[in-house]
Amino acid sequence: MSSSTTRRGDRVRSPRRDPGTTDARPAARRPLLSRVLGVQPIGWLFGAPYLVFAIVVFAYPLVFAIYMSFFDYFFSAPGVEVDKPFVGLDNYIAVLTDPAVLQSFGNVLVFLVINVPLTVVLSIVLATALNKVVHLRTFLRVSYYVPYVTASVALVGVWLFLFGGGGLVNNVLGPLAPDPSWLVNPALAMPTIALFVTWKQLGFYILLYLAALQNVPQELYESASTDGAGPIRSFFSVTVPGVRQATVLVLMLSTIIGANLFTEPYLLTGGGGPNGASASPVLIMYQRGIQQGHPGFAAALGIILTIAVLIVALLQRRFAGGRDE
């Protein structure tokens, strides 16, 4: 490696002779290095802190979780021998045949079907409007940001005030109020939670779009305007394509965050009620793995969930925004 690069590296000042060090200057002129590490090997350097972090902090827990999923594992004190037999795929089979788990996957699907489209549409529309607004800009932006920063314990109280049995919504609906009420109705509990999360998280996605909107070139709007496009047409012909990357991100993040739903059913419906209709896979993972001491089962569930979400996220990226590669 060294000899092949020095020929080309002659023009390079001496401290950079060692080709093993991918330093901060363009390394594109070293063919072998380029062949091994890509056109711009400096990418490795830029990515290094993240990679080191991922290895130092996440590699062990992750590998360990995979390991646990093949054992009837039990967390034990250092040096204590507890029988943790290898069980092969038993945990995976147990997960996939457990009615509570299957129900939770169904629940989270209902959640995503409501939450994700709503999030994408509302956040892009609201961000576009907020971006153009002149008066009360700070006030409006703060308003939309506030649910996102407020601790869940407090929001849950507000939501119960709105959607509780004797809450505001039911009072307004009068005889049209559902019975049993929203959060204790198996058919409505999950949609209500999905609305809650959409509302709570929307500020996050609006911010993402607001930042992305700053980079849509101004002249695109101008030329659209010269072509006689009204605000609605320029929204679809300029804004939507202009923030496509952000849309892919919002789509992916809302799916990932939604699939990891935990706090809301934990707090809002007191542990996944009624009858497990609002239990999420992560809630079940928490109950089985941490509360009940079956981390092998929980790990298998977590890994199945992770793989499923990764597949969905990568599909979203492919279909919604693959062109950047």
Partner: peptide, 20 residues
């Protein structure tokens, strides 16, 4: 690396908590 970033994002924290 991108896949790794996604993976870290996707894995539920509750899965890693005790080993971490």
């Amino acid at each position: 690396t991108f896949a790794l970033v996604l993976l870290v994002q996707v894995v539920p924290f509750q899965l890693l908590m005790i080993p971490l």
